[in-house]
Design a protein around this nucleic acid. Sequence first.
DNA 1: TAATAGCACTCTTTGGTTGAGAGTGCTAAA
DNA 2: TTTAGCACTCTCAACCAAAGAGTGCTATTA
Lengths: 342, 342
Amino acid sequence: MLDERRKKILCAIIQSHIDLNIPIGSFFITQKFPVDLSPATIRNTMAKLEELGYITQPHTSAGRIPTEKGYKFYVNTLIEEQTLSINSELSNELDNNVLITGRDNSKIVKKATETLSLYSHYLAIAIPPKTEDMTIKHIKFIKYEEKKVLAVIVSEEGTINNKIIEIDKIYSQKQLDKASSYLNSKFHGLTIKKVRDRITDQLYRDKIVCDQLVENLIALCKEIIMEEPHKLAFDVFSGTSNLPDFATMKQIKEILKAIEDKQFMLKLLHQISGTQGTQVFVGMENIIPSLQELSMVISTYKDKKFVSGAIGIIGPTRMNYQKLIPLVDHTARVLTRLLSVS
Amino acid sequence: MLDERRKKILCAIIQSHIDLNIPIGSFFITQKFPVDLSPATIRNTMAKLEELGYITQPHTSAGRIPTEKGYKFYVNTLIEEQTLSINSELSNELDNNVLITGRDNSKIVKKATETLSLYSHYLAIAIPPKTEDMTIKHIKFIKYEEKKVLAVIVSEEGTINNKIIEIDKIYSQKQLDKASSYLNSKFHGLTIKKVRDRITDQLYRDKIVCDQLVENLIALCKEIIMEEPHKLAFDVFSGTSNLPDFATMKQIKEILKAIEDKQFMLKLLHQISGTQGTQVFVGMENIIPSLQELSMVISTYKDKKFVSGAIGIIGPTRMNYQKLIPLVDHTARVLTRLLSVS
DNA sequence: TAATAGCACTCTTTGGTTGAGAGTGCTAAA
DNA sequence: TTTAGCACTCTCAACCAAAGAGTGCTATTA
């Protein structure tokens, strides 16, 4: 598609534009890069690149700026050529910064997100694993009010889920404890997904041996587990105050709106689930239509049960991929390491 | 201080400026308000008002805009003259909107905040009651990992507090249950503050009768209760996507930063704690220095134990106080009513 | 034949000028 | 005490011109 020279010039343009945020002209290229060609030749190549859709002119007498297609090509080139490597000093700092956190999983993720935002100067986001992939470790019912019970579900992955449920009859804490231990023996070690699949048939078969209370609580459990299968156990955003630095008012508004309702997270999760490693979305119109001018670098992480969430950054399309892709990648790796031992 | 005419003209200027967001000239006033005075007379009064610091001119040939002092005067006048009354239609909508929510306290507050943002078109915030004023209803320990215990503290007010604590010895769930019930009998009905005050002496006196485990867990409980006495159980922001409509980039940045670290909430809580009813902060430099151009209308609400939190809005200093003060006030009342019955 | 020097052309940017308009303060008169 | 009249100040928008940047095209060169 593109011969070596065109490739080189395209990358030079994008590189320069990322650094300086101005349209790049032919003369500039001859000065900055050792291509040993005259501006006129560069111009010819540029005309061709424009024809192919990789770059564009804001107006007749300006230099060229990359198009979305251009950025995509550039990012792919970076990845293919393995020109990505993290600054080891930064790497150390990153590790230290994340390592000092406490033991709670959600806190570790939060810290990682903060650190990512700190180093990238952009908005950092983290998405937890899907709730339904989590393994149940412990279920506990706590008497909350007369006819309200607090159900606490602790997962193997370290998340804690509270839910208050209403019941028709009054039970004592002792009765609730009994029910808890029955359900623990039944559900322990299963994923929420599996429980959901089985709960309908298997438990109804046991019906005969259960007393009224347990049967009742199973119905409640069903309610918890059925409800919002995609509900996110926690979600993290950090560095929103970095937003104004790179986004327009309109974009800020859109991003904040997206953050406020969780639709965005779900879409995102859907987009990246199943993939591996670090991904770049140039122009995010496939996720939120109004976010065309923004890009995202995001990577998956895994906890000790190998259920994956995602962590990454949202910034301007004109961002320093060379630095940021390895940064996100490394952060996700550190996170995976931390979660696997905790 | 100000005679009747000056007062009237000042309010007319501020009112008009709030409506139109332009500097208000003398001629404009004679047209819009039935003062039966010539522009020249108005001008004289304006000159005096400017001298007194209530209004100012952006430049020589412009009309006048209110100063912070002017706004403060205006708001006080509104409150004194009882010119504030909520639109009953809006009131109904508000009630319905908040009423349909579920039973969880934090969800009720969240819904109220969303509604407030919806009707005000500004950023709505809510601050929960101080943790230390909450009454302990139930304490429960759940085995989490080998040497980690999940402590759940449910308050009478309806909040749920989770914390994972590490211990040196391995205990069975049965042992933990025993400890739970001991602590329940000891702490039930006390505020966290009281518990903190007593825990040191009173429990050490009981030491002799307790076995090793309970003693251990008391120490843990102490750790939970001592830590972060000002920690907020939950905090709510809604309508951040309304931010760009009234704030500059710089302000957005400051607000988002303030929201991200909780210092802001604590300062705020400190400012309003102990007061009653709805308050207006014109120019928020006493809370966050960089937020001079913004104002806040905030009111306290109480839960069924009469512990108070706060709910309000942050908007431009040039906001419609006439409408918004009663809106916030009413919302806080609705919230108090809802929380008292739940 | 590919690369280049030269050149006319286009478009943005900047600064300066100008006139209209808005609103004032002051003064003198009612 | 109020007001009409008026000169004054300042903003704002429009317009213009010159400078500058970068281009595409063409003729020339290695």
